[in-house]
Write a protein that binds this DNA or RNA. Structure first.
Length: 1018
RNA sequence: GCCGAAGUGGCGGAAUGGCAGACGCGCCAGGUUCAGGACCUGGUGAGGGUUAACCUCGUGUGGGUUCAACUCCCACCUUCGGCACCA
């Protein structure tokens, strides 16, 4: 993989830490200086954490690694720019806390136990030891003195303490529920850990299955609204959006649909006379939109309902209630059993079984044909008394809303498809916002020259045809007036026994003896009765919409989901779309048939895992007392070290008598421990608190009233000022840890509500093949060989240089040589003594100009580098540093060499590079300023970040761009503060510009920012 | 299907209304070298041109705004990420 190094000279000796001998060869040998400085920094206590109330603190945190055994290139990509930014903050005068630890619980350790017979603890600790070494090779300023490992009993004692606190505060509960289960990992998963359309396990890609289990949940949904607020957070828009979508807040209404027993109402879905099918009253569609009075018929008091059962639905569109022509329950809905009639039971049971057997994948396949069965029961639409059939269908999810919907096929795409397939009535109740209507008039159904008459009346039409059915006048209309005029014209031409439709605005079927509006299920039935009588062909259609659907030209006007003026909705007809939803909701509440409601997509966090290698849930089940929490003073509930990990992949704790059997803390009787352990996201929800004082109160008895860290240290360091990590945790770790902190705030443990104030998401480094790196794909890039060959500084700088940090992308080693060469040049420009022959002969004025130019370059670069590191733009930071270095290489041959300006330039170059390439910067800094023995006070990493001089950073001269009509024609050197008049004069003096202006009239001259002049000529 | 991000030389990328391609890789030529590597110098978007000056075109596609558009607006295409029958 790594080519043999031509850079590494052979036979370089050991270095010594003694006296003046800390500086070795005059060549840049990263393999020598990097371990040397890592050792000297560690030994001298340069990175020892100190609480210093005199200095402003800065808690800089990067997501903790899982100890898989090997650091990969992704860790370097995520961590070394973080380190650079942390180092920069430190040079800016902050007391920076940059801790590290390990997310050490989790399934791979058990896999190793089964495969290699190693105990998970041993495997984990061995990996951690190896990874510590790899992490050290980064040369990062880790606060190793605050390391925390989540599988340490001193750590998970507190994880369990948090569980008990959440339980006490009613935020942890146990529930029997169908949950996602990974058959490969042998454990349940939280919803967030199930990915993709095929619903696979986030860790091992195995499709999950459903299992009914008794499981522990955290009530994250209690904080749903608060989690949607990001007011105090400087977080990327992308993450905020992902969390917002994940929480999925929808506002709407809950509406109660009483069940109808059918005694006094006959027929399917047809209205009670006088209700629903009433003609539009002119008064109600006028400018006034009063809330309909309470005299409006309320069906559950007006209609005989012998059964008090009712179905509650959640809808985001209460304004479409009048168009609800059927209901759909999820097959798992508890009322299905009770409501299904005897005649329908066999079909319903078969459907339920079939839905149950289907995998989640099949059931949620996006383009799946709608299926469902009628259960034989009816409900009453509470707003108009319509009797509507109840179906079950798997497109309704039992987990969302109330598990039941009112189906409004005219304004919901799924309901539309379902109604069309099963011949259920589709009644539009929201006007088309575009006022568009279409009418197909079959050739031969009208007398006289209908086309000419239409044209004369101002209607646009064309001939369209359907094979086997002939051609038709395709008339397009806009607005009520056109529709009214058109209906009149149409009726005058229609032959007896024929009809034509108006679809879209003004829905109706016009018969030769008059129109019938499609404004109710009764009207739908009446229309179809006439049509069925008219043509055999039409008998295949059960509903008017079904008949219209057969004309393809109609299809895009038949259904819409937009808000708009309500129609066919009794007294609400005419209610404008922008207020309809709120008004109907208010009215429903007044009538006592509904209420404003919010529904969330977010589910409670399932934390039970049927695994050995996790923090045991500190709960005890007593036959006498029930569920009893383990007493605080007994924490930690230890994982038994002698547990045998079964080869079946089952939880070892279930088979460990010593762990399982316990005395009930309440009654002292025989009881059993909970054997499930906690989701590892529980451990990582509070690790940033653990770092403050790792393993606080280790070995002491815990109580509910303490703080899990030393309070004074917590007050000083918390919360996290800057967090960096991958965006893949948006809806998992980042949501959980916010919930956790809010819960802690409400318990009085912390005084703030957000754990991390600023967040930056770096991109993900993919394998060279463009795929996510994974052992199974064999595309994992190990950093160690590259570090050995080029050095940590080169590796750090290269990863920062390849592109914007938040972009990520496939690993590509092409270009790493360039970064190494850059560091070589930095080394040489500082270390190599210039020969005497260069730079001689410069005159005084020339030297002065060169000095000014050098200082300008120095301060300009410093400004750019400072701005870039603040914004994590490491790629352009390094490009600017390279330019600066290239400049210095040339300047070295001039008279500025050895002047104070030259020394300033070299020092600034090193200070600018200190965060990114800490070793070479320190080596060269010490060579320039060190005192032989390393004194941490002289370290470049504790030097103040330099300040640029704005006067020097400002350019003295600019290249004045001269354009003719926006095209660059000439460039002229000019002073930076050139006035417009001077610039014009200069430009007009240019022969090129003169040539371009010859014979043309200058209409306008634009002078921009003192650097561009544009002549607009005509 | 919905939401979001992105599309620029052979490659990674820079420029967020004002010189398109900074910086780096690669490539070409030259220097150095016994030679190769390394290193140093110069060149390197496409087309035209007396291979000179210079001109034309060029940032996914098509329109638009502007003196001026990679940048802003509209429509579309492609890729990636997230969600996905969420009522």
């Amino acid at each position: 993989m790594v080519p043999r190094s031509p850079l590494r000279p052979c036979g370089e000796g050991d270095f010594s830490f003694m006296g003046d001998e800390i500086f070795m060869a005059d060549k840049y040998i990263s393999q020598d200086i990097e371990p040397k400085w890592q050792k000297l920094w560690a030994e001298s206590g340069l990175y020892t954490t100190r609480q210093d109330p005199e200095r402003p603190k800065f808690y800089f945190l990067t997501m903790l690694p899982y100890p898989s055994g090997d650091l990969h290139i992704g860790h370097w990509y995520a961590m070394t720019p973080s380190d650079a930014a942390a180092r920069y903050r430190r040079m800016k005068g902050y007391n920076v806390f940059f801790p590290i630890g390990f997310d050490a619980f989790g399934l791979p350790a058990e896999g190793a136990a089964i495969k290699h017979g190693i105990h998970p603890y041993t495997w984990t600790m061995t990996n951690i030891e190896r990874m510590r070494g790899q992490l050290r090779s980064m040369g990062a300023m880790w606060a190793w003195d605050h390391e925390a490992i989540t599988c340490d009993p001193r750590y998970y004692a507190w994880t369990q303490w948090f569980f008990l606190k959440l339980y006490e505060h009613g935020l942890a509960y146990r529930k029997f529920a169908p949950v996602d289960f990974c058959p490969s990992c042998n454990t349940t998963l939280a919803r967030e850990q199930v990915w993709g359309a095929d619903r696979h396990c986030e860790r091992c890609d195995t499709p999950v299955i459903k299992k009914e289990l008794e499981q522990w949940f955290f009530k994250i949904t209690d904080y749903a609204d608060e989690l949607l607020r990001f007011d105090d957070l400087d977080w990327p828009e992308r993450i905020r959006t992902m969390q917002t979508n994940w929480i999925g807040r929808s506002e709407g209404a809950e509406v109660v649909f009483p069940i109808d027993t059918g005694d006094s109402v006959s027929g399917i879905g047809y209205s009670v006379p006088g209700i629903g099918a009433q003609p539009k009253s002119p008064e109600s569609s006028n400018t006034q939109y009063p809330i309909p009075n309470t005299q409006h018929p309320i069906p559950n008091t007006q209609y005989p309902i012998s059964n008090t059962a009712a179905i509650t639905v959640f809808t985001t569109r209460p304004d479409t209630l009048w168009g609800a022509t059927f209901m759909v329950l999820a097959p798992e809905h508890p009322l299905v059993e009770q409501l299904t009639t005897e005649q329908n039971r066999a079909a319903v049971d078969a459907y339920k079984l079939q839905a149950d057997r289907q995998t989640e994948i099949e059931r949620t396949a996006a383009d799946k044909e709608k299926t469902g069965v009628f259960i034989g029961a009816y409900a009453i639409n509470p707003v108009n008394g319509q009797r509507i059939p109840i179906w079950i269908a798997d497109y309704v999810m039992v987990t969302y809303g109330t598990g039941a919907i009112m189906a409004v096929p005219a304004h919901d795409e799924r309901d539309f498809a379902f109604a069309l397939k099963f011949g259920l009535p589709i009644i539009p109740v929201i006007e088309r916002p575009d006022d568009l209507a279409r009418s197909a008039v079959w050739d031969g159904s009208v007398a006289g020259d209908f086309g000419a008459a239409s044209t004369a009346a101002g209607f646009t039409w064309e001939w369209l045809a359907i094979p086997d059915r002939g051609r038709f006048y395709a008339v397009t209309l806009h607005g009520d007036d056109q529709v009214t005029a058109y209906v009149e014209l149409l009726q005058a031409h229609l032959k007896a026994g024929h009809w034509a439709d108006v679809v879209g605005r003004g829905w109706q079927v016009v018969f030769h003896d008059g129109p019938l509006a499609l404004d109710s299920a009764a009207a739908d039935a009446a229309i179809m009765a006439r049509c069925h009588a008219g043509y055999d062909y039409v008998r295949q259609f059960a509903t008017t919409m079904g008949m219209w659907w057969a004309v393809e030209w109609y299809r895009d006007v038949l259904y819409h989901a937009e808000y708009g003026t309500m129609i066919h909705s009794d007294a609400f007809s005419g209610m404008p779309g922008d207020v309809a939803k709120a008004q109907v909701t208010r009215w429903l509440a007044e009538q006592g048939v509904g209420k404003f409601a919010i529904s969330y997509r977010l589910r409670d966090w399932l934390i039970s895992r049927q695994r050995y290698w996790g923090a045991p849930i500190p709960m005890i089940y007593c036959p006498a007392c029930g569920t009893v929490p383990a007493p605080y003073e007994d924490l930690p509930v230890l994982l038994p070290e002698d547990a045998e990990i079964p080869a079946t992949g089952e939880n070892a704790l279930k088979f460990h008598a010593g762990f399982l059997n316990v005395k009930c803390p309440q009654c002292g009787g025989d009881a059993q421990r909970e054997t499930d352990t906690m989701d590892t996201f529980m451990c990582s929800s509070w690790y940033h608190y653990a770092y403050v004082t790792p393993y606080w109160k280790a070995g002491q008895k815990l109580s509910p009233d303490e703080t899990p860290w030393e309070p004074e240290a917590g007050n000083y360091w918390l919360p996290v000022d800057q967090y960096t990590g991958g965006p893949e945790h948006a809806t998992m770790h980042l949501l959980y840890t916010r919930f956790f902190t809010k819960a802690l705030r409400d318990m009085g443990v912390v005084s703030f509500g957000e754990p991390m104030l600023r967040l930056f998401n770096q991109g993900i480094i993919l394998g060279p093949d463009g795929n996510r790196m994974s052992k199974s794909k064999g595309n994992v890039v190990a950093p160690d060989e590259w570090v050995e060959r080029y050095g940590a500084d080169t590796m750090r700088a290269y990863l920062m240089f390849i592109g914007p940090w938040d972009a990520g992308g496939p690993w590509n080693s092409q270009g790493i040589e360039g970064v190494r060469r850059f560091l070589e040049r930095v080394w040489n420009v500082v270390v190599e003594v210039r020969g005497q022959e260069s730079g001689v002969g410069s005159q005084g004025a020339e030297v002065e100009a060169q000095t000014r130019a050098l200082r300008h370059m120095t301060h300009k670069t410093l400004r750019k580098v400072t701005e870039d590191i603040e914004a994590f733009k490491f790629n352009t930071l390094l490009a600017a540093s390279m330019e600066f270095d290239n400049y210095l290489v040339k300047a070295k041959e001039t008279a500025v060499y050895g002047t104070p300006a030259w020394d300033e330039a070299l020092d600034m170059l090193l200070l600018m590079l200190a965060p990114e390439t800490p070793h070479i910067a320190e080596e060269l800094w010490q060579r320039r300023h060190g005192r032989g023995q390393f004194d941490p006070a002289t370290s470049i990493h504790v030097q103040p970040w330099p300040v640029w001089d704005p006067e020097l950073a400002k350019a003295e001269t600019v290249t004045l761009v001269v354009q003719i009509n926006g095209k660059v024609r000439d460039k002229i050197e000019a002073t930076a503060d050139i006035s417009e008049a001077e610039a014009r004069e200069l430009a007009l003096a240019s022969p090129i510009i003169q040539r371009w202006l010859e014979g043309k009239t200058v209409r306008k001259v634009i002078f921009a920012g003192g650097k561009l002049l544009n002549f607009v000529v005509g």
